[in-house]
């Protein structure tokens, strides 16, 4: 078992605060309340910080480190097909696709939500429709993300949820390690 510190404190705080804020706005807070707006602004602020961190942050926080390549995706799917195991220190290629999907969807939700509050789009239907469609899309993505994390943890023997809490990936001996 080897231990690798991969997720820095900012990444972890970002992850769990976005989880909390998204859940709050999607299921708890009244859609028409002022609080819904403030929670939305908080998500937008977190996304802007994450964007900056993805460019200047430590190795595993950078977008360039985990930008998925078609070859990487094929390799991960081939591992699944043959039952071979390899651990990735950062995001796996398929995981990275989901990260970009979630970041872009959340940015879309924040943007359309903001448009609804402007005079220009007040009472216009499409920002609201798009806002709701993106929320549904994100909810589906989140379910898929959680299922995939559990699946990959069981497949490779690396406890991924714990790594997002402690920041440390514990990789069993004998597993080939990819960056």
């Amino acid at each position: 078992m080897t231990h690798h510190r991969v997720w820095d404190p900012f990444i972890r705080v970002f992850h769990w605060s976005v989880v909390t804020l998204f859940f709050a706005n999607a299921f708890v807070v009244d859609d028409d309340s002022k609080l819904h707006h403030y929670v939305g602004y908080a998500v937008a602020a977190a996304l802007v910080l994450r964007l900056a961190w993805g460019l200047i942050g430590p190795t595993y926080a950078r977008f360039a480190q985990f930008a998925p390549s078609p070859a990487g995706v094929t390799a991960q799917l081939s591992d699944m097909a043959t039952g071979r195991k390899r651990a990735h220190l950062g995001h796996t290629p398929l995981g990275a696709l989901m990260i970009f999907n979630l970041l872009l969807s959340l940015a879309g939700i924040a943007l359309t939500g903001y448009l609804m509050t402007t005079d220009m789009f007040w009472g216009v239907a499409w920002p609201e429709d798009l806002h709701e469609a993106l929320v549904t899309w994100t909810e589906i993505s989140v379910v898929l993300h959680v299922v995939a994390v559990i699946w990959e943890s069981r497949r490779t023997g690396v406890n991924l949820p714990r790594a997002m809490v402690t920041g440390i990936k514990d990789i069993p001996d004998g597993l080939q390690i990819e960056p």
Partner: peptide
């Protein structure tokens, strides 16, 4: 797809 990838591997 899985069969194809297995064969290729």
């Amino acid at each position: 797809l899985m069969a194809l990838l297995r064969r290729e591997a």
